[in-house]
């Protein structure tokens, strides 16, 4: 619960800041240092829904992702549909993505790069993700991070890799 509260506060604070920041200033930040949709678009706030045993069952509809996209698409740039959709995808596929980056290929990596509109061959971008994630995951304290923070880390890594290696 502490993580949730921290995220909610973080979202609120950063959202306030973001309201006053121009899109140009957001884009001028160094790659990988944010902003990212987890903190700026409310994706994090929907991370821990009030679920019970039935709500996670196969026969029950789950539309949090859609809700987040709908609510977030009203904000430009960082909160555009593409970025939020990518963030949700990473949130839901984080473990597969980290594993596939370690292997050096995989359908989830391909999908994430497609969502980020990485044109052309993906090989260089994947190599860049692999190289960065290898360092990120080896950092002390990485394991103690919450799922949300890890997803945000991966988002930053792949975002940087796409900017450097893809034709967009």
């Amino acid at each position: 619960m502490k993580i949730i509260n921290k995220n909610v506060v973080l979202v609120a604070l950063l959202s306030s800041v973001f309201t006053f920041a121009s899109s140009a200033s957001a884009e001028s930040k160094a790659s990988g240092s944010g902003p990212n949709p987890y903190t700026d678009c409310g994706v994090g706030a929907t991370l821990f829904p009030d679920t019970n045993w039935a709500a996670i069952s196969s026969n029950v509809i789950w539309d949090l992702g859609t809700t987040a996209i709908t609510s977030a698409t009203t904000s430009p740039n960082t909160c555009n549909g593409k970025n939020v959709k990518t963030a949700l995808f990473i949130r839901d596929s984080y473990m597969q993505l980290v594993e596939e980056a370690a292997i050096g290929q995989g359908s989830h990596l391909t999908a994430a790069l497609n969502l980020m509109q990485c044109g052309g061959a993906h090989d260089n971008a994947i190599q860049a993700v692999r190289s960065s994630m290898g360092q990120v995951i080896a950092q002390p304290g990485y394991q103690a991070k919450g799922h949300m923070e890890k997803s945000a880390d991966f988002y930053n890594v792949i975002n940087t890799a796409v900017i450097s290696n893809c034709s967009i």
């Binding site: 069952s57 509809i61 391909t110 790069l113 969502l115």
Partner: peptide
């Protein structure tokens, strides 16, 4: 570079349980 992970699905289920 396509992946079927992003294909749309239509899924029927209870909504109010």
């Amino acid at each position: 570079n396509s992946s079927n992970l992003l294909d749309k699905t239509v899924n029927y289920g209870a909504t109010s349980s």
